[in-house]
């Protein structure tokens, strides 16, 4: 029998509230939830038998549901699915060993939620538009390429130059969209992590941590961005527990 860990919480003055909450909840496979504490930090856990666990989509969603419910009442750090230790004692020792890091991360996410923002494009249409711009740039630089006398080399260089210009234009365009996004969201004092060019169609994949009270302002800001870039598709999800803003590994 092992112990599955769902989340690390700051319970402080509300231990009885957590006790009551856990009494009305179940973990994965209907398991009872209980708490293990060290000082002001608590791990919410359940007993599980590794042999009987079915690690599929519905189990992962049950796991996430526990974290979701807890996050509505407590400041927490979600554990990644599959976080299992051998005993209650091992978990308490883990809380003790990592106490400072856990406290620091809990402080960072206090009264905050995470939101996700993905920006999709019609890649063929966008590339066609950028190709037109690239052609216009290449006309102005034709003399440089024309200096190369060998025609085969010239064709190859021209092709490479066009590809390079197209890539540069795409990166410049995506950077300009990111600048607009961060410009809009910085005033909400968000902490952000943004990846660009994730796939040809997913040009931006961002996550933002912001104060719970600013949710409506975030939705409004993303609406403004969508209006500003009608050719792109902005998808905002959340509020989520702060999965993307726990920057440490427990030992």
């Amino acid at each position: 029998m092992e112990i599955m860990i769902y989340a690390l919480l700051s319970v402080k003055k509300k231990p009885e509230r957590l006790h009551a909450l856990l009494a009305g909840m179940n973990g994965i496979a209907g398991a009872d939830l209980h708490q293990l504490s060290f000082d002001e930090i608590t791990a919410v856990v359940s007993n599980m038998s590794r042999a009987s666990l079915i690690a599929d989509k519905s189990t992962a969603m049950e796991y996430a549901a526990v974290i979701e419910t807890l996050s509505k009442h407590f400041i927490l750090l979600p554990m990644r699915f599959g976080s299992v230790m051998e005993s209650n004692e091992a978990i308490i020792h883990m809380l003790e060993r990592n106490y400072h890091d856990i406290q620091q991360n809990l402080l960072k996410v206090e009264r905050k939620f995470e939101f996700g923002l993905k920006v999709f494009c019609d890649s063929e249409k966008l590339m066609a538009e950028l190709r037109e711009k690239s052609e216009a740039v290449s006309k102005t630089q034709r003399t440089t390429v024309a200096e190369i006398k060998n025609s085969a080399s010239r064709i190859w260089v021209n092709k490479k130059l066009k590809e390079h210009r197209l890539e540069e234009l795409l990166v410049t365009y995506v950077d300009s969209v990111i600048a607009e996004i961060t410009g809009q969201l910085d005033r909400l004092k968000t902490i952000s992590k943004i990846k660009k060019m994730v796939t040809p169609t997913t040009i931006i994949d961002g996550v933002f941590l912001l104060d719970k009270a600013l949710k409506d302002e975030l939705i409004h800001a993303v609406g403004d961005l969508q209006n500003k870039f009608p050719g792109l598709n902005f998808i905002l999800t959340g509020p989520w527990p702060p999965y993307n803003f726990v920057d440490f590994t427990v030992k």
Binding site: E2, I5, L8, R50, L53, I54, A55, D56, K57, A60, M61, Y63, A64, I67, L77, P78, M79, R80, F81, G82, S83, V84, M85, M94, N105, G116, T237, W240, Y243, N244, V246, F248, T249, V250, K251
Partner: peptide, 22 residues
């Protein structure tokens, strides 16, 4: 999809422990 991405790939990582297998 966003939820599964988070719960399977994000969150606090526990090192040196068990990978569940089925």
């Amino acid at each position: 999809l966003e939820l599964l991405d988070r719960v399977l790939n994000k969150g606090v990582i526990l090192t040196g422990d068990i990978v569940i297998s089925v």
